[in-house]
């Protein structure tokens, strides 16, 4: 009986902790909003973050995007061959990339690369008192550190997604047409026929939401780091896990709303 009660007690505490955390992240988002509209914006910091989140993630995003497209083409081919509809492989790859895999894979890669770095960077700034130093110099850390990162996240993830969509389809094209010998004309025609502008744009809206989630979670975890170098490590891990889960959950709801 006692064990049962303590189980319920722990369960309740865990729920409460999560709710509290969600609330804190939301409050951070509100204060980011208020600072984002308060000049001056730190353009130099924004550019720096955009370079870090966007430009430096190109390689990994191109790599994952290409291989995803290629694998989808290969897998789809075996399925469609049973119905002699091999030419639909192209549109399957294109729809899959633009709607789902482009935004989700890109933001997961950026989470792993940049979201974790945000948490680690802000975390080490917290434990080495650099954030306190900002306060002491009458400068707001949210304005200097968090707003640029979140702007970079929202702006760069969609652009990376465009790149990922494109190389994914290109990878599918390469495997489909040159390796599996699917008719090139039909392959391309089915893509342009079945994919609509909305598929691409909704994917980009998703990507922007994911960009917000991963940068917000990364900054939140880093900004609230406690406990030295170990704390920084913990914050980084937690940021990646929480951001990845949030992205997948958000993906479900965004898909339900959009398509």
């Amino acid at each position: 009986m006692k064990g049962f009660l303590s189980l319920i007690d722990n369960l309740g505490k865990a729920v409460l902790r999560n709710v509290e955390e969600a609330g804190k992240i939301l409050l951070l988002f509100f204060s980011v909003l208020s600072w984002a509209v308060r000049p001056p914006l730190k353009f130099k910091n924004i550019m720096k973050q955009m370079e870090f989140v966007g430009v430096k993630s190109i390689f990994v995003v191109v790599l994952t995007g290409t291989f995803t497209g290629m694998v989808m083409a290969l897998q789809g081919y075996h399925g469609f061959r049973m119905f002699s509809a091999e030419s639909l492989v192209g549109s399957t790859v294109a729809l899959g990339m633009t709607r789902e895999l482009g935004p989700v894979l890109t933001s997961l890669m950026v989470t792993a690369r940049a979201g974790s770095a945000m948490a680690a960077e802000l975390g080490s700034m917290r434990v080495t008192e650099q954030i306190d130093a900002l306060y002491v110099m009458a400068a707001n850390p949210i304005q200097h550190l968090i707003v640029p990162r979140i702007i970079a996240g929202i702006a760069m993830v969609p652009i990376l997604t465009v790149v990922s969509d494109f190389v994914g389809i290109a990878g599918g094209y390469f495997v489909g047409v040159h390796v599996l010998q699917i008719n090139e004309g039909l392959f391309l025609k089915n893509i342009t026929k079945l994919v609509t502008l909305n598929d691409i744009y909704n994917g980009l809206v998703k990507a922007a939401c994911f960009g917000l989630i991963l940068s917000l979670v990364g900054c939140y975890k880093g900004f609230n780091t406690r406990g030295g170098a170990e704390g920084v490590g913990r914050a980084t891990t937690e940021a990646v896990v929480l951001a990845s889960i949030s992205i997948l959950v958000a993906d479900y709801f965004l898909t339900a709303i959009m398509f």
Partner: peptide, 21 residues
Amino acid sequence: KVGLFVLIGLVVLAYMSFRVG
């Protein structure tokens, strides 16, 4: 670098939109 990157992204987006739209 950022400008170039954004430009590439927009060009690719424009190309895909044109082909599909």
